[in-house]
């Protein structure tokens, strides 16, 4: 069963074409990662899928509802944690949650029970009657997540949920995301944190310049980098390593290879012939970040 379906979404702002025919499908119960560099069209896509913006053309269905024709029904089945959004600072945490519960048409008793559960789960129940103005960034974000989850939605959109958070809050949110997916609910996760996406997501879409570059599982994306193993080597002096599939990051060279033994020998030979010292050499599997950068590079 499909939870989110985008088909040929296009959106233009003045002379800028933000989306150039974005299409993808998210299955029910999936944690779907949505990656892309700044200005790639991530926020515009999320705003269209959450019914905030209307596309110029194309269609989107959320939980079976057309987001343009049946906007309110579609919105009723989603919870949203927008990237650039705040709770009302002069309302208490409780008032903020109850406001959202009212806007979702929840019954008071049901809303109160769920609000109490969520506030306790996210560790802010003791501060429920305090104004949000005095909350730390982590507490505000946890409250925003409570607000997104109050209606017990089938689909949850999380836009940069752990950005700039302390370790404890970030971990709490990640654990909750996994728990939500275990309940066969769908999570649409936008993040710049590759480790987070790698850890949480079943599939990942990469968007660049308003177009979907690819949609695949994190492991398959990583295997596309050009080798099964990444060898990371740092030389003591200036050195230009001339091997296939090599990239330079600061003082390190990263070589992607399917034959690590042969590549290490080549690196050692190079160091011996060039007279440079090897400061460190490590082998690791390519990360999602490697795959992300490689795929964007191929798009250029």
């Amino acid at each position: 069963m499909i939870a989110i379906e985008a088909e040929g979404l296009r959106k233009r702002f003045g002379n800028v074409e933000a989306l150039k025919g974005v299409s993808f499908r998210v299955k029910r119960g999936e944690i779907f990662g949505f990656l892309g560099p700044n200005g790639a069209g991530k926020t515009t896509t999320v705003r269209i899928l959450t019914g905030i913006l209307k596309p110029d053309s194309g269609k989107a269905r959320i939980n079976g509802y057309d987001i343009i024709e049946e906007t309110l029904k579609a919105k009723q089945s989603i919870g949203v944690l927008p990237e650039v959004s705040n709770a009302y600072p002069d309302l208490t945490a409780w008032q903020n949650i109850m406001l959202i519960a009212s806007l979702y048409g929840m019954r008071r008793r049901e809303a109160e029970t769920r609000a109490n559960e969520l506030l306790k789960e996210f560790g802010i129940h003791e501060r429920k009657d305090a104004k949000v103005r005095g909350f730390s960034k982590g507490m505000k974000q946890r409250l925003m997540l409570c607000m997104a989850l109050i209606s017990d939605p089938e689909i949850i959109f999380l836009d940069e949920p752990t950005s700039g958070l302390d370790v404890q809050s970030a971990r709490m949110i990640r654990e909750k995301v996994l728990e939500i997916a275990n309940e066969r609910k769908t999570v649409f996760l936008t993040s710049h944190n590759m480790d987070e996406v790698n850890l949480l997501c079943d599939r990942v879409a990469i968007i660049n310049k308003g177009k979907i570059v690819t949609v695949d599982t994190p492991e398959r994306l990583k295997s596309r980098v050009g080798g099964n193993v990444a060898i990371e080597v740092s030389f003591g002096g200036k050195a230009e390593l001339n091997l296939e599939n090599v990239e330079r990051f600061g003082d390190k060279h990263v070589i992607y290879t399917t034959n690590p033994y042969k590549t290490i020998c080549e690196v050692v030979d190079f160091a011996r012939k060039s007279g440079v010292e090897i400061v460190s050499i490590n082998t690791r599997t390519p990360t999602l970040e490697d795959a992300f950068l490689k795929l964007l590079e191929m798009e250029r």
């Binding site: 905030i52 949203v80 927008p82 959004s85 705040n86 709770a87 009302y88 959202i100 979702y104």
Partner: peptide, 10 residues
Amino acid sequence: RTLERLLACP
């Protein structure tokens, strides 16, 4: 920046 949260509600 409270508007987007409001607009995302049904």
